[in-house]
Design a protein around this nucleic acid. Sequence first.
RNA 1: CGGGGUGUAGCGCAGGUGGUAGCGCGCAGCGUUUGGGACGCUGAGGUCGUAGGUUCAAGUCCUAUCACCCCGACCA
Length: 440
Amino acid sequence: MIIRPYGYALWENIQKTLDAKFKATGHKNAYFPLFIPQSFLAKEEEHVEGFAPQLAVVTHGGGKVLEEPLIVRPTSETIINAMFAKWIRSWRDLPLLINQWCNVVRWELRTRLFLRTLEFLWQEGHTAHATAEEAEEEARRMLEVYREFAEEEMAIPVIVGRKSEAEKFAGAVHTYTIEAMMQDRRALQAGTSHFLGQNFAKAFEITYQTKDNRLEYVWQTSWGLSTRVIGAIIMVHGDDQGLILPPRLAPIEVVIVPIWRSDEQEAQVRKAVERVKDELRGVRYEFDDRETYTPGWKFNEWEQKGVPLRIEIGPREVEKEQVVLVRRDTGEKSITPLEGLKERIEASLVEIQKNLYSKALTFREENSYQVDDYEEFKRILEGPGGFLGAHWCGSAECEAQIKEETKATIRAIPFQEQERGKCIRCGEVSVQRVVFAKAY
RNA sequence: CGGGGUGUAGCGCAGGUGGUAGCGCGCAGCGUUUGGGACGCUGAGGUCGUAGGUUCAAGUCCUAUCACCCCGACCA
């Protein structure tokens, strides 16, 4: 996957907002090596097994066969925890709250742009705590950070919940997820947060001395969000005209397209554009005065790129001291006076952000079902597809059978759902509904 | 890793039965244009994925090989 400047600018905006949230919750950034000695990975049994099929392994270095192969990090639990073991001595060193922005490699058999690439960019948080409660709280806190980010910044509503044993991260005690519905009604895991318990602590001997001088293993979490979310933004908001980017993350919030014929008109329009630029201070805008393209061509190009707002300004507007404002999400055009333009733009960007969210939410709700009959369950999945709230007995057998028969997996076990019922497949007692869907 | 498909100009493609490599878009120059993907003229651009082979002659036939795409099993 190659990320060109416009796409990378989007990722930078994602990084900027998330990074601020991490810092605000007490985390610090650090960087760990790309290459990890193979033996590190082998220390946590479930973790190796989970990742073994996906590893890129370096066998040669400097023209020689390496004594111990190096794996290219698929995630950094092992190398980070090897260091945590050295850094943590006392309860005073806890909690240790670290985040890393980096690339990782997973040797996927089948790739899909943005959603499943051999190499991707992400952030991975790794924390160590004195108690299970604190670690659990941290895992839930960061899940909440992701939820808020998805909904407020990406304008994507998400289901929050826990993963089933089959779907959890290899090495975690349990995994939390935010799941979003794409426009083809499939589910996409947009971020995850793991409660690791003491699995890695025991594998890497990460211990600390308590206040009363006992030696205890730490309790840990890890959590990540990747460039996959760019795919989510495209697939949730895009339409036949191209991308529709949420204003809060869009590299360009407003594009100004000037229109003129004569040199005289050009001079007048340029002068008016200067006023518009003044109004746009603090807004991410671009003035597209390329001469080789017609205004109509530019309209189409910026629409494809998903710029939320377009300002058109030509002789007619100059004369009346106004501009034409066009929304990408609705296509709606409105005449707006130069006077007070800033307020109108800002209000409009907020409006677009809200509208994208509510459109996505409506779509998800329209394609979510409560299902109690397995035949209907199958019918929906074969037909339109969507999120299915269904009872599940909790057995891995039923989960696997349902997956085999319908291709649907348990995307999330929602928090706080109490209603009891009967397993959609076997009819045994179920304590709550879970969300089934076909996933990417 | 199995099944299918495609490699010909920057991009998208056409090139039955072997015989001088083409079209559209894009690109360059000039002119006219510019309020929803402008038009005319002129022009540049190709070891036909790669390597062998058959033939007087291969984009075309044969063999091998590589790459990419799609569909399934594994995965953020």
